[in-house]
Every structure is written in C-alpha cells, then in structure tokens.
Design a protein around this nucleic acid. Structure first.
Length: 332
DNA sequence: AAGTAATCCAACCGCATGAAC
DNA sequence: GGTTCATGCGGTTGGATTACT
C-alpha cells in the first residue's frame, strides 16, 4: 500500500500543479495530464469484467493493497474507473466474499434487520459477513419485493410488513429449527435455537440475537386449543418437509403454501378471516399468528407421523392468490 | 426446437459526504 | 471558504440465464 501511496503522491502533486493554472497555459506535465485524462475517457472499458482484468486487479491489490481506486486503476493498467474497480473488488473478488444461496438464517436476519433499519443495505451487510450490500439489496428486490408486487401490496405498507412479521419470519424461523432438528434431533429439542445448522454469523451481537430472533418468531406459535374442525384441517394443511436441503428456498413457500382443507376446496370462511387479518392488520379479530399457527400444527403432525408432506401439491393455487389480492384490493 | 417472458445479479449511475488542497 | 477528489451508499439498468408456451 505504501508503494501505491508513493505513486499516488506523485499523481496528486501533478494534479495540484494543474490546479491554479489556467487552461491552455500548461507545460509539458499539464499537457500529459490532459492527454492522459482524455485517453482514459476514450479507452474506458465498461460492462462485464474479463478474467484477465480480474487477475490484474487481484494481483495489484495483493501487492499494493486496496484504496485510492482511481489511481489504482491507472497504475494497474486497468481501463476501468476507480469506482468500477472498487465495486468489482468489494462485490466479487474479495477473498472473503461468500457465494451461493442466501441461507434461511441469513434470510431471517435480513428481514429482521430490514424491519429495523430499512434500506440501509451496507449496515445490514455488516451483520452478514461475506455478503455484500449489493447481494442483500438484490435479494430484497428480487425475492421480497416480488411477493409484495404479486400481492399488489406496497412493500412498505403495514399489511405487507405484518405479513412478513407474522407469516414469513415465523415460517423461516420454524424451518431453521426444523432443519436443526433434522440434522441433530437431540440438540434441536432444546430451546436454544439452531446449534447444528451451518451459520455464518460472526458478529457477536447478532450471533447472540439470532437464536432469540428464532425463538421470538417461533413464539408466535403459542399452542392453542384446536377445535375438532381445526384439528381435522390442521392435519391436512400443506407445509414443507423442512430439511437442510431447503436452504436455497425463498419466501415463495411461505407466501403461497397456505392452508386448505382436506377436500381440496379452500375453506374460504377460514381463509377469509385469516387473510383479512393478515393483510388488514385487524387485531380485534383472529390474530394473524393463528393463521400461521394452523400451518405449523399441520407441519408438526405430519412430520411426527413421518408422512410424506405434500408441500407443493397442497399449496395454494392461483385462485387463492387472486382471492388474497382481491381482499387486499377491497381494502385499498 | 424456437420464440417469448420472467428472473437474477453484476455493473453502472447519481448523489452525499468528508478530506485535502 | 471554495473547489476538487475519493469514497461510499442506494437506486437502477441491462444482459445472461432459465422457465414457459
């Protein structure tokens, strides 16, 4: 880095000389500077990075360190802007960048932190080591906002936030626990949260919070006394077979796999109440958590009996989604 | 198999901020 | 105090890939 700084000092000094002089009266240095700037503008590459460019950037940073991106780009011989180099390094080439699907733990964390801080992507990313703000932002836009759009909900609306809080986050929390149970039944039986699933949470504060988050969202499943009808229905609610290979899944499952009765016909009375509650946030009627609770009960019973779950087969169909949208529209 | 739509994500852009001059 | 530059952040875009018809 010191080498780079030395090089940079020269460049900055050159720029300093350039300032304070009027255009057209420059000496050789100034001319060179202007030509160089022009060349940079003319030759600037854009678009996807090549392997060679990546190699050059990695190599240069390995020897000189990162920072001072504009001069780094020039000194490394990259026909890229400093911004472009910085972005490429931070979002892709850095050795500690994690690739691959966002895990359930990370999904839960993102939803939780976003509910606290909003679109503060870099702040959120600080709590997900190896994940970049860009990646989290993309996740949010492609996965979360997509569902808001499908439900014709504003992503910042109370309805949508309630859906996240009372439906999706508990669902994710449940699946984290279920995955932990699947991989280590003994450990997962305790209430201390997932101990066997792979988490990449290194931040101490968040590390301690994650089990609490899971327990917090799981606490939405306060056991209730089911009526006979509910018991019957609960056995047939579609849900996922939450296993460790579900890590790549997203909110789609949580969004569309909502309870239906055994006959295959939607119990609109029940669904209606629940969706109204879920989407309208009316605390005076059925609590939205009970809506999800039904699904969870179903999951427990199905899972306990080691039956093959019909996660997708019994999932909500397009009519259900339309119905949900209709309810939302009526409210708007 | 071909055309089209949807999805994903790397990269870009504009703006804000702070440091250096 | 004004200007320039570097950096970081959040929003947006566009091309590659995948899914669907």
């Amino acid at each position: 880095m010191d080498n780079l700084r030395n090089i940079e000092v020269g460049l900055i000094q050159g720029q300093g000389q350039e300032r304070g002089r009027g255009r057209g009266e420059g000496d050789c240095t100034n001319d060179n500077e202007e030509i160089r700037e022009e060349d940079i503008v003319m030759d600037l590459r854009r678009g996807p990075w090549t392997v060679e460019e990546d190699f050059t950037l990695i190599n240069f940073i390995a020897h000189h360190g990162e920072g001072r991106w504009n001069s780094l780009a020039r000194c490394a011989g990259l026909k890229r802007t400093g911004k472009s180099c910085r972005l490429r390094w931070l979002n892709y080439l850095r050795p500690d960048v994690r690739r691959g699907n966002i895990t359930l733990e990370e999904q839960l964390l993102i939803l939780e932190l976003h509910s606290r801080w909003g679109n503060r992507w870099s702040k959120i990313a600080q709590h997900l080591p190896g994940r970049t703000d860009n990646e989290i932002k993309n996740y949010w836009r492609t996965r979360v906002q997509k569902h808001a759009k499908q439900l014709k909900c504003d992503v910042n609306s109370k309805q949508f936030k309630d859906t996240m809080k009372y439906l999706w986050m508990p669902r994710i929390a449940e699946r984290i626990q279920a995955a932990a149970a699947a991989s280590n039944p003994m450990a997962a039986s305790s209430s201390s949260g997932p101990t066997t699933t792979t988490t990449y949470i290194q931040n101490q504060e968040i590390q301690h919070q994650l089990p609490n988050m899971i327990n917090h969202h799981m606490s939405d499943y306060i056991p209730i006394q089911l009526t006979n009808i509910e018991k019957t229905n609960s056995l047939n609610y579609s849900t996922t077979s939450a296993s460790s290979d579900n890590y790549s899944s997203d909110l789609t499952d949580c969004c569309y796999n909502l309870p239906i009765n055994q006959s295959g016909n939607q119990d609109y009375t029940q669904v209606n109440q629940s969706t109204n509650q879920m989407c309208y946030g009316d605390q005076s009627t059925i609590n939205p958590t009970s809506y999800f609770h039904h699904g969870f009960q179903g999951f427990q019973e199905v899972d306990q009996q080691n039956m093959s779950t019909q996660w997708m087969d019994n999932s909500w169909n397009i009519e259900d989604v339309c119905f949900l949208q209709q309810q939302l529209n009526n409210d708007m």
